[in-house]
Structure formats: structure tokens, C-alpha cells
């Protein structure tokens, strides 16, 4: 998956997760929202700290690239 798809997936998980957590107050919705928020965290990390991005960091670019 490209960072772009990952970002969109993370955003979707965030929006639905927050919605469920704030608007409802039952055990089931809370469980789902917590899972979604963790999913957002993981997807977000893979989207933002992707090797494509990290490879371009730094003043002295000595990355082999891939």
C-alpha cells in the first residue's frame, strides 16, 4: 500500500472511531472504537514514517534509496 492509501485508511479509522466513542456509550461501540483508534495509530505510523519519506530526510543525503 502506498502512503496515500494508508493515510486515507488511518483517517477513516480515526473519524469512525472518535464518532463511536463520543456519541455512543455502550460496551460494544466502545470496544469497536478502541480497536479503530489503535488501527488508526498503526496505519498512521506506516503512512507517515514510511521509508519513502524517511529516505529523503537529512541535509546530507546518503541513502541508497529503493
Amino acid at each position: 500500500m502506498t502512503p496515500r492509501t494508508l493515510t486515507l485508511a488511518a483517517l477513516a479509522a480515526l473519524v469512525v472511531g472518535v464518532g463511536l466513542m463520543v456519541l455512543f456509550d455502550t460496551a460494544a461501540t466502545l470496544v469497536v472504537s478502541v480497536v479503530l483508534l489503535f488501527a488508526y495509530l498503526v496505519l498512521g505510523v506506516f503512512a507517515i514514517a514510511a521509508p519513502e519519506h524517511l529516505g529523503e530526510l537529512g541535509d546530507r543525503d546518503d541513502s541508497p534509496g529503493d
Partner: peptide, 25 residues
Amino acid sequence: RDRFRQVAMVVPLTFACLAAPIQVV
């Protein structure tokens, strides 16, 4: 400002920054 230190900053920062907004919720 070499790449080593940049990478080492971006990864933990991404974790923390992703966690911060949902911590409020």
C-alpha cells in the same frame, strides 16, 4: 542535521503525535 538523527526523531514523533489527539478523546 544528518539523516540518522532525523530518522530517529521522526519515527517516535510520529507515534506520539498520532496518539496525542486520540488521547483527548
